[in-house]
Design a protein around this nucleic acid. Structure first.
Lengths: 378, 378
DNA sequence: GCTCAGGCTGCAAAGGTTTGCAGCGAAGAA
DNA sequence: TTCTTCGCTGCAAACCTTTGCAGCCTGAGC
């Protein structure tokens, strides 16, 4: 039995519009009236109905965040960062998980559409065409995928993969496998392209294994294949797969990094806790979350025009910037010299940062980003 | 510029009420009209505005799920299960993370209140009084805490802790530490009480270390304390802390389980991936998520009465059942015989399931639950 | 004494939908 | 033929809030 604005008006003997103003434009109401109204509101436990307010203002002060798999530890830091940034701008974030299901994704966008001012689409599984379509229903910022004409924030996994391969080349590896991610992933394609090029130019052979589900299980399932292929090093689509692979190799009696070197991508918290600690490409997930929120709210205080003409919704601008964030190789204990080379690590695990292990705390903005094949699907 | 019901009505030459019925009560409209309206709607890309609908029906078909820390791997399975169950009942779940902050929690409940039909409060940090207060604003089901008068679902961590201690006693340990969780946690109190009782009745000494933040870092930070205390076994508040502790002990040169045995609680996915694999108390998180949704939606199709009297909202019933779900000890490799006892494990790691490692796939419902100190805060 | 300005408040429309009620026409029953 | 019945559709109120506009009153200036 929540109190409405009418109840407060009745209780304090003023018109509902005065009550409304007491909350949304306090300077317009007489101080005496104001305190009286406030007291009554407090008394009745009145809270403005955000849905009703949204109906007329056209602004909900909510952001939707649609995630492929909330159980993947890659996402929480991104979610937290987005929430923090949103809170800072007086917005709330509603997270929804799609279970890697494109249909669920579309469904959720529609469910959220009228209850949020914009949606962050994170590693979407939908087709680009569909993304473009839903983006006409509600402002969208895409994360981890480039879609022509839409604001996007992606990580420079290409550079990351290149660094990883060069690191392996430097350790003497010449037969390397790439443990592929899910089919149709934009990130996956970027990694593949960059790793292939780097391997080629280093005179190495790159075997692609996949596509695979981006999980521990998906990685572990390829252990046998890795052994059979005779490679001495593996670059995995993400840390989860790398960890699963290490586990699987262990069960086959192969030691990491003595027999096989393994590199992951993402640098999830877990990668520091496994034995051996994982060499990986750190992606700035938190920065991505913050950036995406900023892009969505770019033109924030943009009150809806009354009367003729529709609302100019959040994100409804023509500057569809695309942002690429830098990645960085983090060398830990899962990579070592190629077996039989007689080399040893210089100075023990984690001592050699390598030429590409540069730490860049500041995100680099590139806008517009050089679009790799336009509309490449993730 | 999303199409409204009015646009569709105009396009198809009928009244808006007919359009409305086409979607919400198709059997009431002439098939011919129906297809025409549907065609126009499809054409214009019309989607009913859920906010506006909610305004009048009083039902949003959304559920809010408020989580203390989305980065804690304990929660994702719960979230997924809740989402699955909700989807099954034609509801959507909006997840919100509070960063373990009670104020953020309250804020979020209010933000969600009018946009959802009910809220799942998961491991809340608010005071019980506050929970009771917000529960007057929106139907609430509490998870991982017992609050008198409110529907709750909790795990039987007491039984779990007892099993864990008895397992350690059986291995000969007599000096055991309890690595406490966050201050004011209901779960923490239950564990402490049960572990204390079990240790006492087994003639063992239980040292309580804490409270601590429920993270790897929180666990690792107590490694030195554990060593100094001279205990031979540790029961941790959760797996994350157990894993952090093992890491910390390792850095101090103490081996698990040779020098110290460690038991966690939760059985997160990660506990199977660490070396050594973690002995832990499995909690039925997925079942908890499902159950909580079911409790919230218990009286689901409960249309709002028009005219006099307010809506009888979801969950607005007097049967505030409280549910307790069984836990189960899972013995892996982080526990072993007390050092110097000369005993060895019977049959190697993980071979002895122990008397309490019973697998119970079906959740046991206890209702009402025997209330431990009424209103004990989590 | 009159005008004017300005501060505060009330009025009413609007936003998109649902739904009880009434009305209409056609088919069936008497 | 007349009266019901029934299927379908339209009307208008209601949900809760915001906001442009107009009106009231007080006080100041002339």
């Amino acid at each position: 039995m929540p109190a409405t604005i009418r109840d407060v008006a009745r209780a304090s003997g003023v018109h509902i519009s005065t009550v409304s103003r007491t909350f949304s434009a306090p300077h317009l109401v007489n101080p005496d009236t104001r305190v009286r109204v406030l007291a009554c509101a407090e008394d009745l436990g009145y809270r403005p109905n955000r849905a009703a307010r949204a109906l007329i203002t056209g602004r909900t002060h909510n952001i939707g965040l649609i995630i492929a798999d909330i159980a993947n530890p890659f996402f929480p830091p991104l979610i937290k960062a987005a929430e923090g940034q949103a809170r800072h701008r007086d917005y709330h974030v509603f997270v929804a998980d799609t279970n890697e299901d494109a249909a669920a994704e579309e469904e959720l966008v529609h469910a959220l559409a009228k209850q949020v001012d914009g949606v962050l689409l994170c590693s979407p599984r939908m087709s680009n065409a569909l993304i473009e379509q839903v983006s006409r229903e509600v402002p969208v910022v895409v994360i981890n995928r480039q879609v022509a004409g839409l604001p996007c924030v992606v990580m420079d996994v290409g550079q990351g993969a290149r660094s990883a391969i060069e690191h392996l080349l430097g350790l003497g590896h010449r037969r390397i496998a790439l443990l592929g991610g899910p089919r149709g992933s934009w990130t996956n394609r970027e990694i593949r392209r960059a790793a292939g090029a780097a391997a080629r130019s280093g005179g190495a052979e790159l075997t692609v294994l996949g596509p695979n589900p981006p999980t521990e299980t998906g990685g572990g399932a390829q252990a046998e294949q890795v052994r059979r292929s005779g490679v001495t090093a593996v670059l995995a689509y993400n840390d989860l797969m790398a960890i699963g692979l290490i586990e699987g190799l262990d069960q086959l009696g192969l030691r990491v990094p003595q027999d096989v070197s393994v590199v992951g991508i993402d640098d999830i918290a877990l990668s520091r806790l496994t034995r051996p600690k994982l060499t990986t490409v750190a992606t700035p997930t938190a920065a991505a979350g913050r950036t995406a929120v900023d892009m969505l709210l770019q033109h924030d205080p943009e009150p809806r025009p009354r009367g003729g003409g529709r609302a100019a919704a959040v994100g409804d601008r023509r500057t569809t910037a695309q942002v690429m964030l830098q990645t960085e190789l983090v060398i830990r204990d899962s990579t070592g010299p190629v077996p039989g080379s007689g080399r040893t690590r210089s100075g023990g695990p984690s001592a050699d940062p390598g030429p590409h292990a540069v730490r860049n705390s500041a995100a680099r903005w590139v806008s517009p980003v050089t679009p790799s094949p336009p509309n490449a699907e993730e």
